[in-house]
Amino acid sequence: MTRMAETFAALPDRLLALLDSLLDRFPRRMGDIPAAVLLTAPALLVLGAFSFTPMVNALTLSLRGGKHGDGAFIGLGNYLDALRSGEFWQSLTVTIYYVLGTIPAMLAFSFLIALVLHRISRARGFFRTLYFLPYVTSVVAAAMVWRSLFNPRGGVFNLLMAWVGVAPQQWLLEPRGMLHLLTGGAVNASIGPSMALCCVMLFDIWHGCGFMIVVFLAGLSSIPREVEESARIDGAGGLRTLWHITLPLLSPTIFFLGVVGVVRAFQAFNSFYALTQGGGNTQDTRNLILYIYSQFYDYGYWGYATAASTMLTLAIVALTALQWRFVGRRVHYS
């Protein structure tokens, strides 16, 4: 038994020695290339099997017509069909509304809550747990509860509305735009996000803030206290310190959360699916992911769906690159 334990303990050293002897066999003029290849090979194998292969599969599928991926090669036909489809653009619009409606609000709320939590000294752990709790709750389970809260007949939100003297609302069943409802019909019902979409956004803001709060708290903790104290000694008030010291030093955190948040928002699925029973009966809550999902699973247009998902991937990559190019410049890393 002891001998076996000794053998296991010596295993890493023996593997390293084996690796060294293997690398020594390569000519020196090859430099670090053999080592780089060998060391990245396990990761490349896993990525190749589970990421690159499906990506290549999806790309080849997107060039085929018909259903279930067994149609003829049609080149970029599916891409052109998607660009000509009104439903594709409408679901993209819903996605953009969703991204614009959730990410800035989540960043703002999370920052404010993190700031308060950072400053308080009592029960900080309790409140951190409290705010993080929605994030660790299953989206589907939480969405089921929120669906009952949004129920137009007997739901808690309508009971609260009645309590404050406001007429009951249709919430998740309301396809008319928020602007239309808020302006009493002055704005066309199809302009802006619908009330149902706003309900989905509200749910995701509630659910997703916990993660951002934790990251913000980590960022705030890493700001040296003496920098803020020096600013105060120099006569800077709370708001000026926040604007000129805290926020610039927190910019890497904000940038990271912004990039990750936008990518996630473009890929949002669970909340939409669970709250609206698969995208709802109307187009106003069908984002691009749900549109792709229905084209793929419900209607069997695998080529078309993978073409749309390829375009979504390209859009996310382009947007992330733009964020790096324009917002990344304003980030202060020290």
Partner: peptide, 29 residues
């Protein structure tokens, strides 16, 4: 020779990934 083998191995791995990706569905038409 060793270097050649290594590059051949990598090339084969890449080709396997691509071929697997290009594979059709298992069902019949």
């Amino acid at each position: 020779m060793t270097r050649f083998r290594l590059w051949m191995m990598l090339a084969a791995l890449s080709a396997a990934c691509c071929l697997a990706g290009c594979g059709g569905s298992p069902k019949s038409g």
